[in-house]
Each structure stands twice: as C-alpha cells, then as structure tokens.
Amino acid sequence: MHGPVVPGWLLVALCAVTGSYCLLRLRSGSARARSAAGGEAVMGFGMAAMAAPAAFAPPGPWLSTAYAMVFGGGALRALWLARGAAHHLHHVVGSLAMVYMALAMAAPGSGHAGHEGHSAGGVPLLTGVLLLYFAGYVLSAGARLLPSAGGGARPRGEPASGAPPESWGARPELALACRLSMGIAMLAMLVTV
C-alpha cells in the first residue's frame, strides 16, 4: 500500500497499465469475457490508486472509506457473477483483500501495528492467509503461461491454421499475464500491511 516511493510508483505503473489493457479487453470477446475484463480493469485502477506513495496521496479516513466502498461493491458484484462462473470467486477474494487493506490503512498507529490477531511472528493471520492464497495464484497463473511440452505452441502473432488474427484485446495469454501481474501486485501490497 504505502511503502518506499520508487517501488510504490512502479506498482502504480504496473497496475495502471494492467487496468488499461483490461479496458481494451472490454471491446472484444464474449459477454462473459467482457464482464471479467471490466472487473479486472476496476481492480487494476483501484490497486494503482491505493499503491500511490503516501507523499502523493496522503491516506485519510475518507480515502480509506472510499476504497473500502468501491472494493466492497466490487466484491458484491463478483459474488453475484460467481453464480455462473467460478472464476469470479477469485475476484471476490481479491476485492475483499483490497477492502481489508483499505481498513488497515485507516487503522490507528504507524506501520499498521494496530491489527488484532497477530501470530507469533507479528503477521496478522488474515494477511498470512491472503499472502498464501495470492502466492499460490501467482504460481498457478505463471505455470499456465509456460509453453506446453508438446511443442504445439504457435509463433506469437500468427493465427492458428487459417483462423483470423486475434486482436490485442482477445489474446488469452495477455489476459492471463494481466491477471498474473495483478496477483504479483497484490502480493507486494499485502507485504506492506
């Protein structure tokens, strides 16, 4: 959330670029893909705003409340959409993690030391569970981006056997790369809680 300035701005840039690509994805694909892209765009831009260094956007109770409301609404929307697609459950977890971090920003005391439920090492239990979840998600998404061992991968940018070329917004490997980058950004933000 609010750590050193240079890594904070790099995290802002990563999340903003990811959110921008998700906006491109809104123009192509099925209604289900567009719905996922919309939620991911909101998540990307929200993460970028929340990662802004404290010198640029000093956190205040009103800002934390706004973040909690936006991401709480995102969690409710994702929970509603999860009825038809299990992928939205990840969006629920991500949105609730952002609500948790927004509430941690508003907690009294510096360094978020006012959290209840610390384990022996000083890490709140919920933070540890979220770190484990997102670490597993990042490893899983990263493994899915690796080329298959069968050598069936086609060169980048070339359509599969006579298929029309894919637009930038419809490339599944780029959508997965965006999800991977948001997962990495979520890990970086959770480490600062």
Score class of each variant (00 low, 15 high):
Gly3Leu: 02
Gly3Ile: 01
Gly8Ser: 04
Leu11Pro: 01
Val12Arg: 00
Leu14His: 04
Val17Phe: 11
Thr18Ala: 09
Tyr21Gln: 08
Leu23His: 04
Arg25Phe: 06
Ser28Pro: 02
Gly29Phe: 03
Ser30Ile: 12
Ala31Met: 13
Ala31Asn: 08
Arg34His: 12
Ala37Tyr: 01
Gly39Asp: 03
Glu40Phe: 11
Val42Phe: 08
Val42Pro: 00
Met43Pro: 00
Phe45Trp: 05
Ala49Ile: 09
Ala49Asp: 03
Ala51Glu: 01
Pro61Leu: 15
Phe71Cys: 02
Gly74Asn: 02
Arg77Met: 12
Arg77Ser: 14
Ala78Asp: 01
Leu79Pro: 01
Leu81Ile: 08
Ala82Asn: 07
Ala85Ile: 08
Ala86Arg: 11
His88Trp: 06
His88Cys: 07
Leu89Asn: 09
His90Pro: 03
His90Asp: 13
His91Gly: 02
Ser95Cys: 13
Leu96Asp: 04
Leu96Glu: 10
Ala97His: 02
Tyr100Val: 02
Tyr100Thr: 04
Ala106Glu: 04
Ser110Cys: 08
Ala113Ile: 09
Gly114Asn: 07
Gly114Ser: 13
Glu116Val: 15
Glu116Leu: 10
Val123Ser: 09
Pro124His: 08
Leu125Asn: 06
Thr127Lys: 02
Gly128Pro: 03
Leu130Glu: 00
Leu130Ile: 05
Tyr133Gln: 05
Phe134Gly: 00
Val138Ala: 03
Val138Thr: 07
Ser140Val: 11
Ala141Lys: 10
Gly142Tyr: 01
Arg144Gln: 15
Leu146Pro: 03
Ala149Glu: 13
Ala149Ile: 10
Gly150Arg: 14
Gly151Leu: 06
Gly152Ala: 07
Ala153Val: 12
Arg154Met: 13
Ser161Cys: 14
Pro164Met: 15
Pro164Tyr: 14
Pro164His: 12
Trp168Pro: 07
Gly169Val: 06
Pro172Trp: 15
Ala175Asp: 12
Leu176Ile: 11
Cys178Asn: 15
Cys178Leu: 11
Arg179Leu: 13
Ser181Thr: 15
Met182Arg: 10
Met182Asp: 03
Ile184Trp: 13
Ala185Gln: 00
Met189Ala: 08
Met189Tyr: 03
Leu190Ala: 01
Val191Gln: 11
